[in-house]
Design a protein around this nucleic acid. Structure first.
Length: 509
RNA sequence: GGCGCGUUGGUCAAGGGGUUAAGACGCCUCCCUUUCACGGAGGAAUCACGGGUUCGAUUCCCGUACGUGCUACCA
């Protein structure tokens, strides 16, 4: 017996990986790690029409970025492969046929036109979406209504057909969900879902059951949108492998957008990303921005997703992956869907930037600055800058605005702030300051400030009047850490150069 | 329409028969800071509604409303 926990994430390669998807992976991953089990990535690519080239690799990249690399996947196969459903195609038909032979399913030869006709005929205001179910199946063209001879003939002729589950007439199907506890459905209200499509590919319903069984999955976490089809899966388990082998289900609450469900399609419309990483649709070339490129840290991303629908009962909000693994419990996952709040997401990132060390931040900040055209040649300067400005950066991309002036002299100045304060006395002051600073051997924060104040006293100008001007001279605007710290960091030469340049510019505004 | 699932401030949420109904984000005020942040101290704001059960209900039960999901040879 294998008592080991095995969980799986089974995305379909149809495009970007959105918030709900990442959270599903995360809960799977946390559960697996907590119980010393395996985390399996299986690709559900049975839908030929929606398959998108590159999406599988993209999913893998997202998981890697988040720090949730699967133990088994198409890229790193274990012993229970293949991990792509398209490569498992051959094994599904047998199970579907076994169900037909045992009377739990049937062949259906209805053409798309037949189905359309049936739906149109029974569609009313009361019943806008007629189902292929116990009420109509005896009027359709299938192995329940046709004779054996006819069925054999149709099959022999290669007539396109599907295999549908035959839902029992009056049965209460109930199962225990780890989050919702007892959930039950009336079998007569569930339709005869297609199990095997005309192209020989299984639908999700058949595939998920067969694959979970064959891959020895013990716990299955998926979005709540699947709850309605759970009775089909429960029945399939009952018919095929036995309910005692069925994994434990957990249907995770949905993540909602600002006004209703968070849809994967219009990622741009909310003003914040919905995908983990940038996704470019190869068909349309349309780019949808991801949290990574927006400037989020993976630590913050998984943290904010973990606590969207779960908490450990304490007041703690900032969790590392290790803490999450230790503290995560499916019992404390909410039942209700949660609305995603981008402002709070930003707050999480801010907290993580403050929390992470300069060493951890360095490569990421370097990427941001270099992408913005700043060449980093001095690594220790970069470290110092990160230390100085990290508390004031919410997103990684903020390091550009907050840190660029340490590397390059300002091109534009906040003229509106300078104009009312600038006069000849100030000009004389800064000329004197520049000369004195240039002559200073020990260019330290303390000495710079001392010189700054001494000259101010000599010229009888309030230091407060001058500090803002000096800041704008060095930075370009009224942001950043202490001016004297900035001055020391960029050095004597650069400080005097910037002061002199600014004097000439300030004269002309 | 049917079926499923849900409902504590604007948002995320703790709590779960008797509480001043935690905390966080956001917002507002003040302090710190002669910049901007960080930080610190405060403030406004909540148990969807109606019936039960009970000495007592935000908490339990039933309805209603609302939200959301499914209702495809998509996952």
């Amino acid at each position: 017996m294998n008592n080991k926990v095995r969980v799986r994430f089974a995305p379909s390669p149809t495009g970007g990986l959105h918030l709900g998807g990442v959270r599903t992976v995360l809960y799977n991953y946390l559960f697996a790690r907590k119980h010393g089990g395996d985390f399996v990535l299986r690709i559900e690519d049975t839908d030929q029409t929606r398959y998108v080239e590159g999406a599988e690799q993209y999913i893998y990249d997202c998981l890697k970025w988040c720090g949730m690399e699967p133990d088994e996947s198409p890229l790193h196969p274990g012993e229970m492969g293949p991990y792509r459903q398209s490569e498992r195609k051959a094994m599904y038909r047998n199970y579907a046929e076994q169900l037909v032979n045992e009377g739990f399913a049937y062949y259906a030869f209805d053409t798309p036109g037949d189905l359309e006709k049936m739906r149109n005929a029974s569609r009313t205001a009361e019943n806008p979406s007629p189902q292929y179910d116990v009420k109509v199946r005896m009027q359709m063209k299938n192995s329940l209504t046709l004779t054996d001879v006819e069925v054999k003939k149709l099959l022999a002729e290669g007539t396109p057909h599907v295999i549908r589950i035959k839902m029992p007439a009056n049965e209460t199907i109930s199962f225990n969900d780890m989050i919702h506890h007892e959930v039950s459905f009336e079998s007569s209200l569930v339709d005869d879902k297609v199990l095997l499509k005309a192209d020989g590919m299984p639908t999700y319903h058949l595939a998920v059951v067969v694959d979970d069984y064959l891959m020895k999955i013990t716990h299955a976490f998926r979005g709540e949108e699947w709850l309605s089809s759970a009775p089909v899966h429960v029945l399939l388990w009952k018919y095929l492998f036995g309910l005692d082998k069925m994994p434990q289900w957990a249907h995770l609450p949905l993540i909602l957008g600002p006004n209703g469900k968070l849809s994967k399609r219009d990622g741009a419309k909310y003003g914040f990303p919905v995908f983990a990483m940038n996704w470019t649709d190869p068909k349309t070339n349309e780019l949808t921005e991801g949290f990574k490129e927006k400037g989020f840290l993976p630590e913050a991303f998984i943290n904010l997703l973990a606590v969207l629908g779960w908490n450990d009962g304490s007041e703690q909000e900032i969790f590392s992956m290790d803490e999450l693994i230790e503290k995560f419990s499916i019992d404390r996952v909410h039942k209700a869907g949660a609305r995603f709040d981008f402002e709070k997401a930003r707050w999480f990132n801010h907290e993580w930037i403050k929390k992470l060390s300069v060493k951890d931040l360095k490569p990421k900040v370097k990427d941001v600055l270099e992408a913005a055209g700043i060449n980093i040649s001095n690594e220790s300067l970069l470290e110092k800058v990160i230390e100085l400005v990290k508390d004031r950066c919410t997103l990684l991309t903020d390091f550009y605005e907050q840190g660029k002036f340490f590397f390059v002299a300002p091109g534009l100045y906040d003229e509106a702030s300078v104009k009312p304060k600038w006069d000849d006395a100030k000009k004389t002051y800064f000329e004197a300051l520049s000369v004195k600073l240039a002559a200073e051997a020990n260019f330290s924060v303390e000495n710079i400030e001392l010189i700054f104040k001494n000259i101010a006293a000599e010229k009888n100008i309030k230091p407060g009047e001058l500090q803002m001007l000096l800041r704008v001279m060095l930075v370009g605007s009224k942001i950043g850490p202490g001016v004297f710290v900035i001055s020391e960091t960029i050095g004597k030469e650069e400080t005097t150069r910037r002061i002199e340049k600014a004097i000439t510019i300030f004269q002309s505004i």
